[in-house]
Amino acid sequence: MTHKESEPVLSVRDLRIGIGKQNAILHGVSFDILPGETYGLVGESGSGKSITGLSVMGLLKRPLQVTGGSILFRGQELLTLNSRARRRLRGDRMAMVFQEPMTALNPLATVGRQIAEMFVIHRGLRWSQARTKAVEALENVRVPSPEERARSYPHQLSGGMRQRVMIAMALACRPDLLIADEPTTALDVTVQAGVLELIAELSQAEGTAVLLVSHDLGVIANMCRRVGVMDQGRLVEEQDTRALFERPLHPYTRGLLAARPRLGSRTLAQRGRLTELDEVVSSDERGRDQPTLVTPRVFSGATP
């Protein structure tokens, strides 16, 4: 790693995405991720959190396109790179874990081959060497009997195991940035805990920066040091996780925190109603830029 430790791995500035030039979907999003940091993006479906992740990877599909702003990866502007150069970064320096491992993995190739491919393409290893490395990679994500599992096809593995394979593949080349888009939404809670712990441990051991996209506040709170809240294509609030839960500033964040059912909150006496989001935040307060409430690190210059 050549970059200084304090410099952000990823720095997104005023990123705009639209369908053509007319219909804007993302209205200027800015955030930084430092090495070894896990940054959370939370919001409901359609808030733009997933397309933010995809645009960093360069995987936006037509008709979606970046219409403005900049994405700096280790100081290098990604938006002006040609597709060849971006493809070389993808899987090597930056990698992604998707929500549904069954659709993201190739059903016709063994998982060992799919992981080995990373080493062949990005490291120029021979297939035989790459296979040994693939088994090691499976061992790192704590897949039991990795040699046997490397010969399995995706459909022969359980959901939790498939997600571990995805993580092994993503981390195979020790990327500087891992983008995890709802990595545990399709998994059971007991399996989810293991997968999240794994991502946290590996990112700490390797100093990998993680962009964690999720709608689950519990997952975000457990994993992230800093959180950005997205609503209707805007980053409406960004704070350290603790501060966000203690003092949510934007009305939307307050609504989101109030609307979730909380374990241990029900009293024996009665079954109360849950607070609904629109009882806390009115629709004209939603998706509005409120610069005074947003406290991005980039503008305040503070480091965590």
Binding site: V189, T190, N222, R242, F245, R260, L263, R266
Partner: peptide, 27 residues
């Protein structure tokens, strides 16, 4: 419901309740 959540007894129930990611744990 109250017995299950206030005194979960079977190891599996305890594991299930213990695995719920709880935002309040941050505070």
């Amino acid at each position: 419901w109250h017995s299950i959540f206030s005194r979960p007894t079977h190891p599996y129930t305890r594991r299930l309740i213990g695995s719920v990611p709880d935002p309040d744990a941050v505070l």
